[in-house]
Design a binder for these strands. Sequence first.
DNA 1: GAGTGGTCTAGACCACGAC
DNA 2: TCGTGGTCTAGACCACTCG
Lengths: 233, 233
Amino acid sequence: MTGMDVNTWRGVHDEVLRRIRERVWKPGELIPVEAELAETFGCARNTVNRALRALADSGVLERKRKSGTRVALHPVGKAVIEVPLIRREIEGQGKRYGYSLLDSGVRPATPEAAFALGLARDCELMQVRAIHLGDGAPEIFEDRWINLAAAPGAATVDFTLVSANAWLLENVPVSRGEMSISAVHCPMAEVSLLGADFTTPHLAVQRVTWNGEAPVTCVRLLYRKDHRILSQF
Amino acid sequence: MTGMDVNTWRGVHDEVLRRIRERVWKPGELIPVEAELAETFGCARNTVNRALRALADSGVLERKRKSGTRVALHPVGKAVIEVPLIRREIEGQGKRYGYSLLDSGVRPATPEAAFALGLARDCELMQVRAIHLGDGAPEIFEDRWINLAAAPGAATVDFTLVSANAWLLENVPVSRGEMSISAVHCPMAEVSLLGADFTTPHLAVQRVTWNGEAPVTCVRLLYRKDHRILSQF
DNA sequence: GAGTGGTCTAGACCACGAC
DNA sequence: TCGTGGTCTAGACCACTCG
């Protein structure tokens, strides 16, 4: 009838979602307990649990022990942005990937980099600046600082052959990260690299990653003019 | 020893993750089948399944029936951006929320709006333009088009009292959406509203949402100068 | 055809948290 | 205290897909 048996977790998921959408269960309201729903739908409580858990993950339901399960008052949409290898990001647009190292070396960190990584103001880090190309044209300018204490191998890598992005991803485990998206002017220094002009707005993304408590790397990506970040939810 | 029993799904999850990080199981390699891991860890196959499923969701593992489970070659990071009610977004920054309707009415859609919604070029839509304030200062300029066919009630709502954002969220179910983030100049028309100047770069977010196959609304949000979108992964 | 993950079940115990 | 979701178990059948 509804296209899916109600005794599978997906079936229960869809049926519960339908009842929420059609206001059978209204925002803020408690819905029946798992055991009752299991009986209603003629399935095991485990099955109901998995369905409700999925709905809670997606923000439609709020669950608390003892209190029960209620329909979220203000469902919070969650847009997932995939953060792939830069090479794949460019190839995913159907373009031929190119990479060029600008310069690299161990030097005193800028205050901004040290702060982002939560390290001492006067620490020494490895900086790698590079440009990523799509079909030969500049796509992304990369300015990266690497904490050698967390990624010792980086000191001896030849970043003209492998991008820091690829090398780190394959050689240094990461447990968590933060991302910040902003709109900026193309700094004078990078204007010629990106083939832009000083007044054009660009998307900038800053990513900081940690391995446990140790900060690994902080990278600032400056995208080509007109680049958009897309996502679905 | 490791801080968590290995016979819970979280325990298995962490232990598998550890083995991947420490290269016990290398990128691209097959890991043992569920039944074998269950025996190894002294737990039920269900428990292992849940742990591996979570790791597959987060992009660390790739699973296929018959083939087995392998460590992802290029783990794709997934950054989750929460898309709350605009009011909550502003209050979440510790600011007092304010809202002001600029104008609204049913009119022929702009070509861009019609295209974004996948509707006929000459369709009539309801437009709502408003400004969202934080501590009395402009935070977000909102330019929205509503498909009255998908949200009939919208025609009679007084948007000076309720923001379109809040009304839609509470009254029109949404099954999926798309989001696009870009960097733009503040258009001349909105310069004074946001208290910005013409040359400053701003973050712009366009969101389109559907209910099933029916397009519901398309909104363009222009953020205050210096606004950043944050996310964790 | 056969191996692997995907899922369901019926039952059980536990942990949180409202009262 | 005790109701509710969170989880584990042992077993079973199914669906996909590789060879």
